[in-house]
Design a protein around this nucleic acid. Structure first.
Lengths: 128, 128
DNA sequence: CCTAACGTTAACGTTAACGTCAATATGTTG
DNA sequence: CAACATATTGACGTTAACGTTAACGTTAGG
């Protein structure tokens, strides 16, 4: 079974972030790559993780919350309380995301309107 | 014409933020309330602004960008370069918002799935 | 008039998410 | 082998968005 692996700089380039950022995510417990001696070696699953981290960030989640989510996923969810916690947290986040989605719709609509008017104004200048 | 006005604490309570935050937004040039002597007096249009600020924040925009947008709106858009700048900035932001919207859809779908499985697992525990 | 409650500015403190730099190790290429 | 690229771990610096505290003014009620 061939396992493709990457150096930190390869990974950083392919996601267009700095190595420093990647090491920082590791410090915060969001990544745990293998080591070859002292060097970090990343595999596909690390890429997946990183992709999730960046998506979380784009959505405005602090790293601490992204970690919480990872921890919940990782916790072979078995016990009842664990499950209830998971469900509650998911619902919290879902509400926030739905709020964001609504915000986006409002703003996109407004922007479309402004854009139209701006283009129209530009047209007028062209004719005048 | 009756003009309703609010104190800083009234405003802060109705938006569930601190007075400090409101003053900070003013420092950053996002609000400019009237004054009665030294006291800040807010009106409906300030409420509208504040609502926009908070929405921008929820979408992850830094205050500096929110100010940029306000400045563009305020700039009686007339000149050609101004208009072009406005259109370009709007398009940039639109792309980011559309990216966010897609992110949200992905995450919401994933979350729905995890939530289902968690609830199912919880059910099983109840029966067993 | 005295006290609360609310307001003001100024200034320093805090947290998150890295950036930047130094000192050092390892690997590889001409 | 020397030089250069790439890696490592600290450690300190930076920015955004407020929090917190200090020191002080102003207004309403008893």
């Amino acid at each position: 079974m061939k396992t493709i692996s990457f150096s930190i700089s390869e990974l950083s380039k392919s996601f267009d972030i700095t190595p420093r950022a990647i090491r920082f995510y590791e410090d915060q417990g969001l990544l745990s790559p293998l080591r070859e001696g002292t060097r970090r070696v990343y595999q596909e699953k690390d890429r997946v993780r990183l992709r999730l981290i960046l998506r979380g960030k784009r959505l405005g989640f602090p790293l601490s919350e992204i970690k919480e989510i990872f921890d919940l996923y990782d916790n072979e969810m078995g016990e009842e309380t664990q499950l209830k916690v998971l469900i509650r947290k998911i619902q919290e986040r879902r509400l926030r995301l739905e709020q964001q989605r609504d915000d986006i719709e409002v703003v996109l609509t407004e922007m479309l309107d402004v854009e139209k008017r701006a283009k129209a104004a530009l047209e007028e200048l062209g004719e005048a």
